[in-house]
Write a protein that binds this DNA or RNA. Structure first.
Lengths: 193, 193
DNA sequence: ACAGCCATGTAACTCGTTACATGATTAC
DNA sequence: GTAATCATGTAACGAGTTACATGGCTGT
């Protein structure tokens, strides 16, 4: 079989298992509300590149049609695509998640700058975490009603809940670090888990 | 000033702020017990490439000496390096951490395979988390005694504690997902935070 | 009329990886 | 004597990014 598909390719393939035909543009939008939180939201160009590769491998079917004056191409997963995705999930180990945690990296070498700089960074991070939590929370709410066993969004819901708790945990950790750095402001901003 | 240094370059620069002169090989070892958990442990070749770049920019000083029959080069951060690191930390936003969470990615599309496959993946993840926690825990213990305000390993300790809690939280989330997937095994494996 | 979104792609480039190559020192 | 560790690098390559280019359609 074809073994030369990057993880992002499988991620896109995965997005196409939720039933609909999607254009590259739509895939990007879906990725922005799902993949973005746990993987990465690929650049448009990357998505088109990947779709090309998947098409060449016969894992997706490209459906070109005329829409107004322009040509629009939708993609759907094929039988082979289903099989390839399945083979990937069952046959290759998931591997340990990789964190590219710029905040922790900087905290690690906090002695190289002023304490207030580090505190400011952590405050910024808290604000961004709140925004991320709000974004993901909206997504999660949109899945309500189809999140039970057997429902189409069962797994996305599980993942969203995991992500929300992860963000909540990060908030706690950031606050603890701030405390430890001698700040007892006591933001009245409480957690979920 | 020089703006074209990748984050990994600054990470290496950061490792050199802890006092000693290090060889590329030693930097790799340090990275394996620190950076690995929150950033990435660069390949040897990448480290040498980066050291070359940092040297060219005058941010580190290469100290070549003869040790036995072979030439060994140690690197130390320069004044300019300190300044560049500081400028990076104070002048560029940390940005939001990126998660390359292969486990969550697969869980997201869990409907594409058998439930037991997904459960097995989560069990594997739990085992890997335990191993990671043990590794990082050892590192954290090694920092005891120099982890108070003003001590050299203050910040590394903060980061290690954060990381340990992160792993603990991930364990909880994985267990919760397992529960939700209809498994009430009740591993007697309890968390920290 | 113009901005913003929908939609698709190409080109150049960078980060980082794996594979390869070399050789000395240390431990068993 | 031989395996593991220390130590340094080059070459080929791949994934993914930004910048660039194009153009239609939609709302104000």
């Amino acid at each position: 079989m074809s073994q030369d598909i990057p993880v992002t390719g499988y991620a896109i393939l995965g997005l196409l298992t939720f039933g609909d035909e999607l254009t590259g543009y739509e895939i990007k939008q879906r990725a922005d509300v799902t993949l973005r939180f746990y993987w990465v939201s690929p650049a448009m160009s990357q998505i088109y590149t990947e779709l090309r590769r998947l098409t060449d491998h016969g894992l997706v079917r490209a459906d070109a049609r005329q829409e107004g004056g322009r040509e629009v191409t939708s993609y759907a997963i094929t039988e082979d695509g289903q099989a390839a995705l399945r083979a990937w999930m069952d046959g290759t180990p998931a591997g340990f998640p990789v964190l590219k945690h710029t905040v922790l990296l900087r905290l690690l070498i906090g002695h190289a700058t002023e304490p207030e700089q580090t505190r400011a960074m952590l405050h910024d991070y808290l604000a961004e975490l709140d925004a991320a939590r709000a974004d993901l929370g909206e997504v999660r709410e949109a899945l309500r009603g189809a999140d039970q066993p057997g429902d189409p969004f069962r797994f996305p819901s599980l993942v969203a809940d995991w992500g929300l708790d992860y963000f909540a945990a990060e908030s706690r950790h950031a606050r603890r670090a701030l405390d430890s750095l001698g700040e007892t402001d006591a933001d009245p901003d409480e957690a979920t888990a």
